[in-house]
């Protein structure tokens, strides 16, 4: 056995030639930077050290401590959680709803609907957010106009701290639901038809079939989508950057936006990398919690 593996193994020069370039790029621009960021987060690297590296000092956990003591950090954390906890499930539910529609045997023109639902996914966020700024316009916006028909008085979506985050969430759900919809459609199609046929024979209603067959059979797909969505939503940045710049009164300031401002506007590099690692730890915990919840649900 040992002899066979040695004889069959590819010559090291070929391994180096084929894997070397891609792994070198990934090392230089991913693994080493992660390591560097981790080290930098324990230093006071800032605009002065940027010009002269001798100003760099090791500060231990000071960056982490000052982040945890900063009210702005907690605000950005709260906003990010708001976005993840409200926007995440809403996004997954919208994807599932659209997938169920597309998978229905009663639907006509399915390819057209699938295409239209998917369009927001492939378009440039900066471009569509320009349109959404006008959709949200308090005076001339289409949203307030539509709401006026059901008697809702005009809302200053992006100017009122109570509505700015919901506005960002609506935009994000609209932009993203098509992607997970496609994964849900594949999941739905993999459920054997006989299950439904057997259930109808026994007189189960459509709703009962949905609860007893569709939901459990989709559970692995749903877990995958929930984790991917959560990881992506924790990294909220471009939507508030182009729509609100984090305002009004920091109501849409996300962790990544805060990190960007600290790092690339004020050049508090040590502090900013500490924020990045705090975000990483939060995402890691979130992922583990979701796996755990799924396990508990399975038992």
């Amino acid at each position: 056995m040992g002899y066979k593996t040695i004889r069959n193994s590819t010559h090291w020069s070929a391994v180096l030639l084929f894997l070397g370039p891609s792994l070198a790029v990934i090392c230089c621009f991913f693994f080493l930077p992660v390591l560097a960021a981790f080290l930098l987060s324990f230093t006071d690297f800032d605009i002065y050290s940027l010009s002269n590296i001798n100003y760099l000092r090791f500060v231990g956990f000071n960056n982490y401590i000052s982040a945890l003591q900063s009210p702005v950090f907690w605000t950005s954390l709260k906003n990010t959680f708001y976005f993840v906890v409200a926007g995440g499930p809403l996004s997954v539910a919208a994807s599932l709803g659209a997938a169920l529609l597309l998978n229905s045997k009663f639907i006509k023109f399915k390819p057209v609907f699938r295409l239209v639902y998917f369009l927001p996914v492939v378009t440039t966020l900066v471009a569509v957010s320009i349109v959404w700024r006008y959709v949200y316009h308090p005076k001339f916006g289409a949203l307030n106009y539509l709401l006026s028909f059901v008697g809702v008085s005009p809302v200053d979506w992006l100017g009122d701290p109570n509505f700015s985050m919901p506005a960002i969430i609506i935009l994000a759900v609209w932009k993203n639901f098509g992607y997970n919809m496609m994964i849900f459609v594949a999941g739905l199609q993999s459920i054997p038809v006989d299950y439904y046929e057997a259930a109808s024979m026994e007189g189960a209603s459509g709703w009962q079939q949905f609860i007893k067959i569709t939901i459990p059979m989709l559970a692995p797909t749903t877990l995958f989508i929930s984790i991917i969505t959560m990881i992506g939503y924790f990294q909220l940045f471009a939507e508030p950057y182009v729509m609100t710049q984090g305002g009004p009164v920091n109501s849409t300031l996300s962790i990544v936006l805060y990190m960007y401002q600290e790092g690339f506007r004020w050049w508090n590099i040590g502090y900013s990398t500490a924020l990045a690692f705090l975000l990483f730890v939060i995402i890691l915990i979130g992922t583990l919690v979701q796996f755990r919840l799924q396990k508990d649900a399975d038992n």
């Binding site: 992660v34 930098l40 590099i269 990398t273 990045a276």
Partner: peptide
């Protein structure tokens, strides 16, 4: 190792990559 590192958010690397 490659696959599991995909959980690290890309933003972590932004500043070091910029400096590089």
């Amino acid at each position: 190792v490659l696959l599991s590192s995909m959980i690290i958010p890309g933003q972590v690397t932004m500043l070091p990559v910029f400096l590089l």
